[in-house]
Simulated assay, not measured.
Amino acid sequence: MRTEDYDFYLEESRIAQHPIDKRDKSKLLVLRRDTGDIEHKRFYDIKSILRPGDVLVINDTKVIPARLFGHRKDKTETIEVLMLKRVEKDLWEALVRPGKKMKMGSVVYFGNGELSCEVKGITDDGTRLVEFVYEGIFEERLDELGEMPLPPYIKEKLQEKDRYQTVYAKQDGSAAAPTAGLHFTPELIKEIEDMGVKIVNVTLHVGLGTFRPVSVEDVSEHKMHSEYFNLPKTTCDAINDAKKNGRRIISVGTTTTRTLESAIRGKEVLEPMSGNTDIFIYPGFEFKVIDGLITNFHLPKSTLLMLVSAFSTKERVFKAYEEAIKNEYRFFSFGDAMLII
């Protein structure tokens, strides 16, 4: 399977640079798995497609202001530290720019020195292991000094931090938002619950590897980034009961999907667990948990586009993308939504 087969052309004007005023008024393209039929709706219309008894699974991770700009002690140049993943308490895997100058033992100071980090290790791919030292509470220092780590294709400055956050975000730890969930409002969530849909959560902390295109020629040779996840007992019980009784599991986002399909491997039912997953889902994969997928429109040659193609078919997904482009849908993180059901 060739990576090149998952490329497509997209005009830059179709890349959403900012969120729309009302989250649930984004466009929603509905792709039927069994027929390939396509419908055009608004996201709030999802209530007409969900059924009482469905289980909707969300990712409650919270994006941290993971981009920090600091300096050496002599303040000769600006150093950017982009936090990717917590290794242990104050030790993080991070991208550091300029990286070559940041050798073992190098220290970066942020603000007036109330937060600093020291390079404790260098990985094979050039990322740094940095240990933070701070006054007070780490999360408060980050909130004061850090910026939201928007994807590189978003050039406009985000006016409200909360717009790169789902309304149900709780667990600190992501370097990127689980963007399929950005379309929900508290009101829409309540309406969905009131109609008899059960909403349960997983946690998967999203790393920036989610935006990296696949660079190898053969898809099967791509090595997936590893991300921390937690699958609670209440979620397992709700999903296992629904599957046993023939009710649908609708996954909100590729991160939720990766969590569920990773946890079920080698098992017949889901069991509570936490750990790291590097599962790579591409066409040929056999899904055991989800029956529907809410997602955004993804980058060419990305693992996310391959996952979506695996859940439907590449041909149907690419036809849907062509329809979305023709109907002026907005693409990527702040863009419109797609439901495959």
Rank of each mutant, 00 (worst) to 15 (best):
residue 205 H to G: 08
residue 13 S to I: 09
residue 155 K to D: 05
residue 53 G to F: 12
residue 242 A to R: 02
residue 171 Q to T: 13
residue 309 S to V: 04
residue 300 P to S: 09
residue 308 V to W: 06
residue 68 L to S: 07
residue 298 H to D: 10
residue 230 N to T: 14
residue 224 M to C: 14
residue 166 T to D: 10
residue 202 V to F: 15
residue 44 Y to S: 11
residue 14 R to V: 09
residue 197 V to Y: 15
residue 6 Y to N: 04
residue 165 Q to M: 02
residue 4 E to W: 12
residue 211 F to S: 00
residue 64 I to V: 14
residue 300 P to L: 10
residue 106 S to G: 13
residue 312 S to H: 00
residue 31 L to C: 05
residue 95 L to F: 00
residue 220 S to C: 10
residue 274 S to I: 05
residue 32 R to K: 14
residue 303 T to K: 06
residue 193 E to V: 14
residue 211 F to P: 00
residue 215 S to E: 01
residue 61 T to Y: 13
residue 276 N to F: 11
residue 333 S to T: 15
residue 190 K to S: 08
residue 54 D to E: 04
residue 124 D to Y: 08
residue 60 D to A: 13
residue 105 G to S: 02
residue 333 S to P: 10
residue 167 V to A: 01
residue 7 D to G: 04
residue 108 V to P: 06
residue 95 L to W: 00
residue 242 A to L: 00
residue 172 D to F: 15
residue 316 R to Q: 11
residue 103 K to E: 01
residue 190 K to G: 04
residue 321 Y to H: 08
residue 130 V to T: 11
residue 68 L to E: 13
residue 322 E to N: 12
residue 266 G to P: 14
residue 45 D to M: 11
residue 268 E to G: 11
residue 41 K to D: 00
residue 219 V to S: 02
residue 264 I to C: 05
residue 205 H to C: 02
residue 73 K to H: 07
residue 250 I to P: 02
residue 129 L to K: 11
residue 182 L to W: 02
